[in-house]
């Protein structure tokens, strides 16, 4: 039952997203009925283009977060060092408390305008949930399971691959899901430094007081976030 429901909801999100992106004219008519929009600006990028850029930025930054986050957590695990664990958790917490805007602003002078500072900021932002969830997931493995694995003569690496990671997988997936969902919405801010994505249209809409335009670009962001939230659930 749950599975069917989940698939159906995912399907609805997918359809809504596609219709919104490719057939926005249908929706526009309905929305204009409620809104008083000037709708005078000629858009340079199509919604499809923005969607492509947005997904590209999110997927790239989240993939980097996963690679870095998992490596850090695995390094902590293999070292069995409590100190190292605290240091890694501290650093990733710091990464989380820095506002995305600040990271972007700080990186522009060094890297320049465009997609790169945004990807960097999102990547740093996504590391914490992944590191923390992976470490917590590995820590919740029952002690007798760990003792048995060790006592049977598995090396730390063999334990990690055969026992620890499979058992921590649900927690790791949760971390990835949180990171992705955060990044989908946080990516909109990248437009301020010349990055692509739905943010471009949202910022343009804000500048010209065009409500329709803001809605046009923010609804797909919400739907995309909801879609990832569904798809990346473990069961």
């Amino acid at each position: 039952m749950n599975r069917i429901l989940k698939n159906r909801v995912t399907l609805i999100y997918t359809l809504l997203f596609l219709v919104w992106i490719f057939q926005f004219d249908w929706i526009k008519e309905t929305l204009l009925f409620f809104l008083d929009s000037k709708n005078t600006i000629v858009q340079r990028s199509s919604l499809f283009e923005l969607a492509y850029q947005h997904s590209y930025i999110v997927l790239l930054s989240t993939t980097l977060s996963i690679l870095i986050g998992l490596s850090l957590a695995i390094w902590v695990r293999l070292s069995r060092s409590e100190e190292l664990k605290q240091i890694v958790l501290q650093f990733s917490t710091i990464g989380e408390t820095l506002p995305t805007a600040a990271i972007i602003a700080l990186s522009v002078p060094m890297i320049g305008y465009g997609n790169v500072p945004l990807v960097l900021a999102l990547c740093i932002y996504g590391i914490l949930p992944i590191v923390r969830n992976t470490i917590v997931g590995l820590n919740t493995i029952p002690s007798e399971v760990q003792e048995a694995a060790q006592g049977l003569g598995l090396t730390r690496l063999e334990q990690l691959i055969r026992i620890d990671l499979p058992l921590a997988l649900p927690a790791i997936l949760t971390g990835i899901r949180i990171a992705t969902v955060i990044n989908v919405s946080a990516a909109t801010i990248g437009a301020t430094v010349g990055a692509g994505g739905f943010g471009v249209m949202i910022i343009a809409g804000i500048r010209t007081y065009d409500t329709l335009m803001i809605i046009q670009a923010s609804v797909p962001v919400i739907v995309m976030a909801l879609w990832f939230d569904r798809v990346l659930r473990a069961n």
Partner: peptide, 14 residues
């Protein structure tokens, strides 16, 4: 450890 079998109270099956 591989030369020595090891059983514990909680069993610790995977």
């Amino acid at each position: 450890r591989r030369k020595i079998g090891y059983c514990i109270q909680g069993v610790g099956l995977f």
